[in-house]
Amino acid sequence: MLDLTDIKKLKNALDKLEYQLENHQQDKSVEVNLAEIIANFKQNLDFNLFNGIDEKLKLIQAAICDEKGLGRLNLLLANAKVPKKYYDIFYNMLRGGGG
């Protein structure tokens, strides 16, 4: 996830590149710096995407193995984006507790 510091770094690098383009300058270090910042962002986003996919695959596997129980329920809750703090309500319903 990008934070405010990362966004400010990117903005600063883009401002420097814009200044160079407007003033017909050719300092390669500005381009290299911008390319490094973008590559860093891409790497972080790819990592976060992979972790999200991996988590979903584990939920799907659990749902296949336990299609009428907790595995399926966890997949349904994750797909519905129910906050984890409310999972116990649904677990009680699955057990037959009613709430």
Rank of each mutant, 00 (worst) to 15 (best):
Y87M: 01
A63D: 00
L73F: 06
K28L: 10
A39H: 07
K84V: 12
E36F: 09
N92D: 15
K11L: 11
N40K: 13
K16S: 03
V82G: 08
R72E: 06
A63N: 02
F50W: 09
L14N: 10
N23Q: 06
I64Q: 15
L59F: 12
E22D: 12
D3H: 13
Y91W: 08
L17Y: 01
F41E: 05
A80R: 08
L94D: 10
K42Q: 13
L21R: 13
L10K: 02
E36V: 06
Y87C: 02
V32P: 00
D15K: 06
K42W: 04
K11N: 11
K8T: 07
M93A: 11
K56L: 15
I89P: 00
L34G: 01
L4E: 15
D66M: 05
Y87L: 01
D66A: 06
V32N: 11
G97L: 04
F41L: 09
K8A: 12
L57E: 15
D54Y: 12
N79T: 07
L21G: 03
G96T: 06
Y87N: 04
L4C: 09
V82A: 08
E31T: 13
M1V: 08
F47T: 13
D6P: 01
Y91G: 03
L73R: 02
A13H: 03
G98M: 05
D15S: 08
G69K: 05
M1C: 07
Y91S: 03
Q61E: 14
L49P: 01
N40H: 10
K68F: 10
L94E: 15
I37Y: 01
N33I: 00
G98Y: 05
F90K: 03
Q25D: 07
L17I: 01
K56I: 12
K28C: 04
D46A: 13
Q25G: 02
I53H: 10
I60F: 03
M1E: 11
E67G: 10
F90L: 06
Y19S: 00
K16M: 04
K28M: 09
D88N: 08
Q61M: 07
L70F: 12
G69Q: 06
N79A: 09
V30D: 01
C65Y: 08
K58R: 15
K28S: 12
N40I: 02
E55V: 05
K9I: 05
Q43W: 05
K16E: 05
I7P: 00
K16F: 00
L59C: 03
M93S: 09
D88L: 06
N12D: 14
I53W: 07
I60Y: 03
E55N: 12
K28D: 13
